[in-house]
Computed example of a mutant assay.
Amino acid sequence: MKDWKTYYNKKMPNPNLGIDIFLSEKFNKGRKFNIHWHENMQLYFFTKGNALVGCDKSRFYVTAGSIIVINNNELHFLESLSDDLKFYTIRIDPSFVFSNQVDLCQTKFFSPLSQNLICFQNLIENDKQILNCVTITIQEYFAKKIGYELAVKSFIYQLIVLLLRKYISKFLTKKELDSKVNNLKRFDLIFKYIDSNYSKKIYTKDLANIIHISTYHFCRIFKQITGKTTTDYINGVRLQKAADYLNNENMNITEIALRCGFDSINYFSRLFKRHYNVSPTKFKKDNKQPYCIL
């Protein structure tokens, strides 16, 4: 088992099938999947509410009908922006589309996909073909009528064809892929450090020293991986921790701000309102139900 904080590995419920579909609902405002990555391709299909999804350097505000494609080895997170968020997750293991007989399709398409040499655009909206394909796949998976495995596999094939024809964003060389994965592994130490020390002063030069590179190169690679500056990322972690405390602890706003590493209460309140579109006080009042962090 890989001991990386941001690496996420969940076993398939049926290893012989190689696909997992599940529904997430009653996601209150502020509930989230923290930043992570995995080796399976994944889709989010939103049917209700609003959310913020981050994929590498990009940020997407999604609503009902939106589909997000998560590529293999792609750092991402999800955060609910409403109290009624509802979405399906479709996890696809490469073995699901592979066969024992190596053929042209496997060599030309599935092998590059499994190695993340082909990357798709993340956000898909207003595409009836993709929407129908995803919807039917979900229906077949849960109905489990005779032959549903064949049906699901056929629609996943169709989905991949549509993505290949309309939503390829880039091709990676093996060297580029290796560099990307190595950076994810190396910077995992940084994500661990920030998550453990968010209440303290954190200086960029100290973070750079952890992985033994210059501050300049650290800032460049960090922005490349997360899409954020170090300061913005650290503040984001602090705001997430603050939301958790507001939901689950009997502390006042000042105590929470200080515990989360903010020296200025006014600065904390401004950042919190900008991120959640509501003041910390109102957030605490409106979100009395606890939520889970992945």
Rank of each mutant, 00 (worst) to 15 (best):
S95V: 15
I138Y: 07
L131K: 12
G147I: 07
N71A: 08
I138N: 08
L75A: 03
I124R: 01
N266D: 13
I213L: 10
T254I: 14
I156T: 13
H38K: 05
P94S: 06
T226M: 01
Q101P: 04
A151S: 13
N182S: 14
P13H: 02
L189K: 12
L163Y: 09
L184K: 06
M12K: 03
F33Y: 12
A243H: 02
V53G: 00
Q240H: 11
M251A: 08
N71S: 09
L81W: 06
N100A: 07
C105G: 14
E79P: 01
I253Q: 00
W37P: 03
K145W: 13
K170D: 14
K185V: 14
F33G: 06
T226H: 03
G65K: 00
N73T: 10
T204C: 07
R274M: 13
H217M: 11
N100I: 09
E149T: 11
V134W: 01
N197P: 08
I67T: 08
F272S: 04
Q115D: 10
S24H: 09
L150D: 12
L52R: 08
Y148K: 04
Y276K: 03
S154N: 15
L239Y: 02
T229R: 00
Y141S: 05
V97R: 02
L177S: 15
F191E: 06
T137E: 01
S214W: 14
D263V: 14
N72L: 11
Y8D: 04
N16R: 11
A143R: 13
K108C: 14
Y193L: 10
I293M: 09
S279N: 04
A143P: 06
F171N: 13
K5H: 09
A257Y: 00
I138L: 08
N50I: 07
M12F: 12
T63K: 09
W4Q: 07
L104T: 11
I234L: 01
N100C: 07
K166G: 11
D263P: 11
N132I: 06
K29I: 11
K285C: 01
S80Q: 04
L23W: 01
C260M: 01
I124N: 02
I35M: 13
Y216G: 08
D263Q: 14
S58D: 15
I293C: 11
K288R: 10
K223V: 07
A143T: 12
K26N: 15
R270P: 08
L159K: 08
V161G: 13
D84W: 00
S99N: 12
L163N: 05
Y44K: 07
